[in-house]
Design a protein around this nucleic acid. Sequence first.
RNA 1: GCGCCCAUAGCUCAAUUGGAUAGAGUGCCUGACUACGGAUCAGGAGGUUGGGGGUUCGACUCCUCCUGGGCGCGCCA
Length: 565
Amino acid sequence: MKKEALDIIQKSLEGLTATWRMDALPDIEMEVPKNEAMGDIASTVAMRLSKLLKKAPRKIAEEIMAEINKKLSAPAEEEGPCVFDKIEIAGPGFINFTFTKEFFLQELETLLRDGHSLLRTDMGKGQKIQVEFVSANPTGPLHIGHGRGAAVGNALCNILKAAGYDVQREFYINDAGLQVKLLGRSVHARYQQMLGNEVPFPEDGYHGDYVESVARELEKHSGTAYLNRSFDECGGSITEQAYRMMLESIASDMKDFGVLFDRWQSEKELHGQGKVEQALDALQAKGLLYEKDGAVWFRSSQFEDDKDRVVKKQDGEYTYFASDICYHKDKLDRGFDAIVDIWGADHHGYIPRIRSVLEAFDLPKDRFRVILIQMVTLLRHGVPVQMSKRAGTFITLREVIDEVGPDITKFIFLTRKADSHLDFDIDVAREQSAENPVFYIQYAFARISSLFRQANERRVFNTEHRQLLEKTDLTYLKEDEEISLIKKLLHYPMVFEGAALTCEPHRITYYLQELAGLFHAYYYRHKIITDDTGLTLARLSLCRGVKIVLEEGLGILGVSAPERM
RNA sequence: GCGCCCAUAGCUCAAUUGGAUAGAGUGCCUGACUACGGAUCAGGAGGUUGGGGGUUCGACUCCUCCUGGGCGCGCCA
């Protein structure tokens, strides 16, 4: 749909570049007008050229129109139905295209024949792209904020993959720092206390119930082996075990949430392999490190950052930033063409320094992108639940999944732009009612599935996909609702392209709600399975089209498409 | 104090990267089941896009100032 209009404009512009004395063609943007009366797709190219050509946009549009008419009146090279019903200039200089019904039916047929492959693109051209997300400290269970990051990251990876990128999903484990040690201390103290040795609890220790669970596990495995022994004596082993358990629980949470990673990268391992030093050496070789006040600094202010950053402290220890330098260099060394980091919004201050690192290692600016995930406020009985990881008062992702299910949870996380606050009302999410938009979409899918069951059971139609296609005459589709529904289906590739370009999965969420809405309205107003076999087959085919797109979209979001509910 | 993000219908949020008359859901009001799944559908009310100024053919979108919120600003991780 976009392609046809784009082609004709492009060809017309080619004929005009000489008279306009232009070297190159401008980017031609196409958009779907809000109002159906303004046609099916519109180009703003005349307005955009106005500044450049110093001419009124309408005048430019008229010149383009004249050229278009010339092309269209030329004898058609290919056979087939007429594509354009009308093309007209409107408003300040829009060129509006209205397609013929025959064209829409032909496009629907293509969708039915090619199915999902038509809904994907090759924008990425096989480029390797890495998406790092969740990357939680293994010092406690995942909370709801991690869940949002996981849902967005997962959907984004699905989008990029469908857009032709070679995607790698990675979880970075911050296991090298003091936080993990603090977990070990906390578990050590709880373990002692549990067995009657009243040691004080670490000042900044983790207070969550899970620390006691870990201590109990420890006792199950090792009995009283660590009792009455100081942290200095046995802390290493305890920390290691506690860390393993946390990591396993995180991995199983992700698995049950339906989010899988290709790779888990340990920070500690990077240190162990000497890669941190190597990364710093590489910066040194570029003359980007210097010593001051007994510490080693990175000249990040030469790039995007407002000041230089310490990478090696006075005491000789590396900073966390040094690990990050190393990690991002490692990503580049692994041959990725582009890198996406998904972080909590509270880390936004780190963007300039990481950007600096990647620039220092010669990654072009536009090949790195940070998606910020804004905070989630959990509401229970309409009241925000305060959360603190240290104090141990927080709702875990596990609890939410168990309570409302992974599909709904994921979907709700994807109903907002990533970078805006999200209220997660757990009572609404639990209600399996109309208030819950997931059901609205899934219900449309289940309804269509039910139609096909009905058709197979009650009638003699063979609705097996290929046979349905062969027997169907789509020209039976004449109702306004049917044409609107077809148009909506054909919008999907544009919505998808937009989502991929901007890395915004929520666009697909909104689209699916609109599509489901049109379907429900159509279904309510028109009977699908009627006594008229030709009409029934055509309508079932349209439903099949809706089903294909719903399935594709839900799949991208990581939400299931149930045949029955 | 400096920097980043946000402010849109009563509430929660969209708005095709600067496009035409700013849209959904929910809530409220009114209607539709002898129905292929009513977990649905139709209609109504609801707005000076926080405020002022600017940029241009055109601004919710970009610039600037103000107001009000969130988050950052460590040789912590």
